[in-house]
Design a protein around this nucleic acid. Structure first.
Length: 424
RNA sequence: GGAGAGAUGGCCGAGUCGGCUGAAGGCGCUCGCCUGCUAAGCGAGUGUGCGGGGAAACCUGCACCGAGGGUUCGAAUCCCUCUCUCUCCGCCA
């Protein structure tokens, strides 16, 4: 959410930014409700002042045993008027709140203007795609032939877009989770957390999934609870409503969680394999930082995620999301895309974003500087470090052998009981 | 699920029969004084949001005592609903 004052004072900037993202908002309704709200609030405050003064007077009269019937009668009508205006105020604030919650974040000036993912500039490419002297297979074929992935049975248990890992497949998924968590905690200074996988409506609103994107979420029936689509939601909300101290910052958390997404509107896309699932595992990185450092923190967050791919020896590239492809809450996002041989293309495996104060304002996460009055909103960042299912897919495809086996990346072997390859 | 207790400022904790209580007292913290170090001591200050005034220090209005409603001229104090915490019982991974 943007600050109402900021929107009011920078309307052209905000309008331009929303337009660049391909969004819309009812600016006229905003102006109307904003003016109306101020007028009503002003009158309410005056009346309340009047009432406060009169109440004191009534208290004094009564203490002296004098009558105060006239004052009390006056105040009764003032009270009625206040109540009436308060209803009006609530209505206007509702309108404003709805509009403000629906306005996306303003992109950082360094974000390129563009329409969609085709306009995302590649900022670097690391590693070289492997060359095979045989026809490279998709990870779904590799996995099913070795009996470590079983999509048919998963479909019977739950439905399409659910995974079932077996044997070495399940072990590989678990190994990757531990591998990633160990690196982020031991080498990158993150604190491991294991949060709730179900959250309430407020938390979802704080990070920006709600109110706009409810159709992307799984909601529990008869409960106002949702399955998390990413650990970003519970982890960012760890500090909702808090005032942190300057010395506490920066705070780094890493969390493994399953993620649940309805994938509404993606029918027919990535129907095979582990790329697009209703349930997948992810190791997430979340940061709370001082505003003046958030962009250097974003660069380091990106590096932290890249480290995993480098250690696994997977080829990848990094793109900057253009304005049209940027997520609702983000001010700037880098996507890391891993090379997928069977599809002969790079696929997103991590998304690293700086939300600036957007989420912090919604979630009311502030900090106080030593010796300074007042508080300031923190900046929040997060990034996948990495999406585990897609990492499994990338390992299977990039390390596949002619005989149908898959070599385990060296760095991962300690996590696989020393095993060097997965064979049929 | 059943029975009971509770939710106040960074923390602890008081708030009488509703009326100068943004909230006593203590701790902590900040600044100053004093003591040749440390400790102790003394003095002052120390919540957040929105708005008005001032160059600024600061002054000023409104709101906030878990959340939301209600009663009342007036509520941290009374009533209702919800959430959370604690104790006991039941059930249970």
């Amino acid at each position: 959410m943007l600050e109402i004052k900021f929107v009011r004072q920078n309307l052209p900037t905000v309008q331009k930014a929303v337009e660049n993202r391909g969004g819309t908002a009812d600016w006229e309704a905003f102006n109307r409700a904003d003016a109306q709200r101020s007028a009503v609030l002003n009158e309410i405050e005056q009346l309340r002042h009047q009432r406060n003064v009169a109440s004191e007077q009534i208290a004094r009269l009564k203490k002296n045993g004098q009558a105060a019937d006239a004052q009390m009668a006056d105040m009764r009508s003032v009270g009625d008027r206040i109540k009436q205006l308060e209803t009006e105020l609530t209505a206007q604030e509702q309108i404003l709140g709805d509009i403000l919650l629906g306005i996306p974040n303003i992109p950082d000036p360094s974000v390129p203007v563009g329409r969609d993912e085709k306009d995302n500039p590649v900022i670097k490419t690391v590693g070289r795609p492997p060359e095979f002297d045989f026809q490279a297979k998709g990870h779904w074929d590799i996995g099913e032939q070795m009996g470590i992935l079983d999509f048919a049975r998963a479909a019977r248990i739950a439905g399409a877009r659910f995974p079932l890992y077996l044997g070495a497949g399940a072990h590989l998924e678990r190994a990757l989770i531990n591998f990633m968590l160990d690196i982020h905690t031991n080498e990158h200074g993150y604190t491991e957390v294991l949060p709730p996988f179900i959250v309430n409506r407020q938390s979802m609103t704080h990070t920006g999934q709600l109110p706009k994107f409810e159709q992307d979420l799984f909601k529990l029936e008869n409960w106002d609870y949702f399955l998390i689509p990413t650990a970003e939601v519970p982890v960012t909300n760890i500090h909702q409503g808090e005032i942190l101290t300057e010395e506490q910052l920066p705070v780094y958390y890493t969390a493994y969680t399953p993620c649940f997404r309805s994938e509404a509107g993606s029918y027919g896309k990535d129907t095979r394999g582990l790329i697009r699932q209703h349930q997948f595992n992810k190791v997430e990185l979340v940061k709370f930082v001082e505003p003046e450092h958030s962009y250097e923190e974003l660069e380091r967050l990106l590096q932290n995620a890249e480290t995993i791919l480098q250690r696994l020896g997977l080829p990848y590239r990094v793109v900057t999301l253009c304005t049209g492809d940027l997520g609702f809450s983000a001010a700037k996002t880098y996507d890391i895309e891993v090379w997928m041989p069977a599809q002969n293309m790079y696929r997103e495996i991590s998304s690293c974003s700086n939300f600036e104060a957007f989420q912090a304002r919604r979630a009311n996460i502030r900090f106080k500087r030593k010796g300074q009055k007042g508080t300031q909103l923190v900046h929040t960042l997060n990034g996948s470090g990495l999406a585990v299912g897609r990492t499994v897919a990338a390992v299977l495809e990039n390390y596949q052998q002619a005989d149908g086996s898959v070599v385990i990346p060296e760095a991962l072997r300690p996590y696989m009981g020393g095993k060097e390859k997965i064979a049929p």
